[in-house]
Nucleic acid binder design. Structure first.
Lengths: 204, 204
DNA sequence: TGGGTTCTTGCACCCGATCCAAAAACCCGG
DNA sequence: CCGGGTTTTTGGATCGGGTGCAAGAACCCA
């Protein structure tokens, strides 16, 4: 996705181009729309070379996920780092997801998603979504894996991601008067995962 | 996705290029892998011009979905055409999905999916999946919309698609000794949708 | 002052995708 | 059997995202 910036304290320092690139891109996307804006235009406005863009972003579509990527990564690491506290992993899954959702800054509402039709981001947004969502699904799967069959673990991963996506989508679509993110995610996630409790005796 | 072929009985007849293109592509993907195979190579082996490819397929990645696209389309139309029989729409949703799954030919197991790592189809497969899955999610959403709130309808769409994907994935991964497709889809779909029944009094 | 390291840049290239105009192949009415 | 109307095929041109590479620039430290 996005190149990590190890902030090396040796060698040539980066020209702090990253933020400038993001800003230039946001401006141009608003002016002309996403598809009509070429990477060259972005780098031109930012005052750097075209290739420099790829030092900071792996793809043009990475710009669409600037607001969400940190929280997605946070959730993935949270799932990986969670020790064995009390409660079934399925219960703790919901808790963890909602906790990360609660920590997501209310200000960071992805313009690429809220203004899809205005900026024409849909196509690239769709194409670049699975890379994020599948990473999430896999993290969820391995998180619940110890207490579920492989098949059910995978299913929970897919289903949870679907629910999260629906929740986040509703949160974005709600407009400026929107409630807190956890509210939407919880409302979608709860019923989606309800059917997986006590599945031991049954379909498994 | 794939261009419709109205089979016009006037004008220049199509060379039966479509099947030839599919075959040539399948061969080349096996020989060299998907990313290493260019559209030009495919059309060359099929004996047609490069542009002809785009008369039959909207994108290279359409080749990856040859086996699944018909069933996806069938499900979408089935959801759209379903009159008002008995039972809640949520119940009929499962029935419809499983019916379409049951009609999917057992022979049509997408090689692009079963041989992901062998043929290197993952990246393009991911990028082209949402176009299909979102169409499905929307169809499901509008199907259950009359009996659910907008938010819950959307959530059901996302969650059901997640479950279906998990089921189909397991079906493909099961190898040649796989059971019938409906079995896997049912096992994933049932628990995923269970939590949405009798939601009227509660989270709604 | 001279490495070693990292960032930047230019250049070349590949490939998927789109657009357009011309030619080819067919059907049918006259 | 000849000449529109229609559709497919094709070639040519163009665009833009993405990759690879090698040279140079900017910095730190010894």
């Amino acid at each position: 996705m996005t190149e990590a910036s190890p902030a090396a304290r040796v060698g040539r320092p980066r020209r702090s181009s990253r933020q400038m690139l993001e800003d230039a891109a946001a401006e141009l996307f608003l002016e002309q729309g996403y598809p009509a804006t070429s990477i060259e235009q972005i780098t031109q406005r930012a005052g750097v070379s075209r290739n420099t863009f790829f030092n900071y972003f792996g793809a043009k579509s990475d710009l669409l996920w600037i607001d969400l990527d940190p929280s997605i990564a946070a959730l993935v690491t949270a799932l990986g780092a969670s020790g064995s506290e009390e409660g079934t992993r399925l219960e703790r899954l919901t808790t963890l997801i909602l906790a990360v959702a609660a920590e997501h800054p209310a200000s960071r509402v992805p313009w690429a998603l809220s203004q899809v039709e205005l900026m024409g981001t849909r196509a690239d947004l769709e194409a670049s979504a699975p890379a994020r969502l599948l990473a999430l699904a896999e993290a969820i799967q391995t998180f619940v894996a110890p207490e579920e069959s492989e098949f059910i673990a995978r299913t929970i991963g897919s289903v949870a991601v679907g629910a999260i996506a629906a929740g986040v989508g509703a949160w974005i679509a709600a407009g400026v008067r929107r409630d807190r993110l956890e509210t939407y995610v919880a409302a979608a996630l709860r019923p989606a995962l309800a059917g997986f409790t006590n599945l031991a005796k049954g379909t498994r």
